[in-house]
Design a protein around this nucleic acid. Structure first.
Lengths: 146, 146
DNA sequence: GGGTGGTATTTAGTTTGGGTAATGAGTTAC
DNA sequence: GTAACTCATTACCCAAACTAAATACCACCC
C-alpha cells in the first residue's frame, strides 16, 4: 500500500474519487425503478438478496445507517410486501428480515432499468475507459464495505 | 463500447458500481472537514477551484442541482466568507461567484483530512486494488459529469 | 431467584438538504 | 416597443436521515 496521504498522485486520486462518487450518487438517487422506493430501500433489498436474511441491526450496520432509520425502512418494505418479518429463533429482542419473491422479481426488473440508464450515460466513454471502470467496480464495492 | 445492457459481465459491473457508489457516497457525507459545511457546498467549492468563477446557474447545472438550491448554497457560502458575489459584467440578471482565499486555504486543509480518512479506509485494500482504483478515478469523474 | 448492566428495536421529535411553483428583474427577437 | 424568454430569487414543502428516550429482552453475578 502506497502512502495515500503524502503521495501526490494518490492524493489527487482520492480527491477526484470523492467528488465523483458524491456527484454520481446524487444523480443515481433520481434514477428509481419504483418511484415509491428510496435508494436506501433499494440498497437494503440488494443486501438481503446477497445475504439471505438479517436482523434490522445487522442491516443498519451494513448500510451504515442508524438503527431507527432501518426500523422505518424495514417497516415500509414490509408494508409493500417486499420483505417478511419473523421473530428471531434464539433471541426474542431481535427479528429476522428476509425478502419475498416479489422483491426478487422487482430486483431483476430494477437491474434492467438501472443498466439502461447507466449504459446510456456510459456511451460517452470509450472502450478502454469502460474497461477500467469495470475492473474497478468490485474494488469500489469492497472499499465501500470496509 | 460493448453492449452494456445485454453483456452479462457489464451488467454485473454496472449493478456493483451503482450500489458501491451510493453506499460510499452515504459514508462520505459523514466525513466533513468543517462540520458546518454540507457535502454539496464542499463540492461547489471544488468546482469553483477548478473553473475559476461561474454564475449560480452554471453551478447548478454542473452540480446537477436545481437553481433555487444553488441560490441557497451560494448564500450560505457567502455568509461564511468562502465565496464572493459580484454583478455580472455583461448581463445584470446574472451574478459571478468566485472563491475567496479563505476557501482556498480550507480546501487545502480539507484535502488533507479527507485523504487521511480514505487512506485509513483503503488500508484494507492491497496495492493492486488501489492501483485499479486510482486508474478509475478520472474515468468515474468523467462519467459523473456526462 | 432477583437485581444489574447491556443490547435490540422502536417511538417521538428534529434537522437537513433538496425539490416545485410562482415572482421579479433583465435581455433578446420581432 | 412589446412579447417571449432567461436568470435568479422567494416562499413553501417533503423526504430521509439523525438524536434521545422508551421498551423489551438477555446474561451475568451475588
Amino acid at each position: 500500500m502506497p502512502d495515500l496521504i503524502h503521495d501526490g498522485d494518490s492524493a489527487a486520486a482520492v480527491s477526484s474519487l470523492r467528488s465523483a462518487v458524491m456527484l454520481l450518487g446524487r444523480r443515481l438517487k433520481h434514477q428509481r425503478v419504483d418511484e415509491s422506493l428510496s435508494p436506501t430501500e433499494m440498497s437494503v433489498l440488494g443486501t438481503l438478496a446477497r445475504c439471505g436474511s438479517a436482523t434490522p441491526g445487522e442491516l443498519a450496520r451494513k448500510e451504515h445507517v442508524q438503527p431507527p432509520s432501518m426500523t422505518r425502512i424495514v417497516a415500509l418494505l414490509e408494508a409493500k410486501g417486499l420483505v417478511r418479518l419473523e421473530p428471531h429463533p434464539d433471541d426474542r429482542r431481535q427479528k429476522r428480515v428476509s425478502q419475498t419473491e416479489q422483491a426478487e422479481a422487482m430486483l431483476a426488473e430494477s437491474r434492467t432499468k438501472r443498466n439502461a440508464w447507466l449504459a446510456h450515460l456510459a456511451e460517452g466513454l470509450d472502450e478502454d475507459e469502460w474497461e477500467t471502470l469495470r475492473a474497478a467496480a468490485p474494488v469500489l464495492e469492497k472499499l465501500a464495505h470496509l
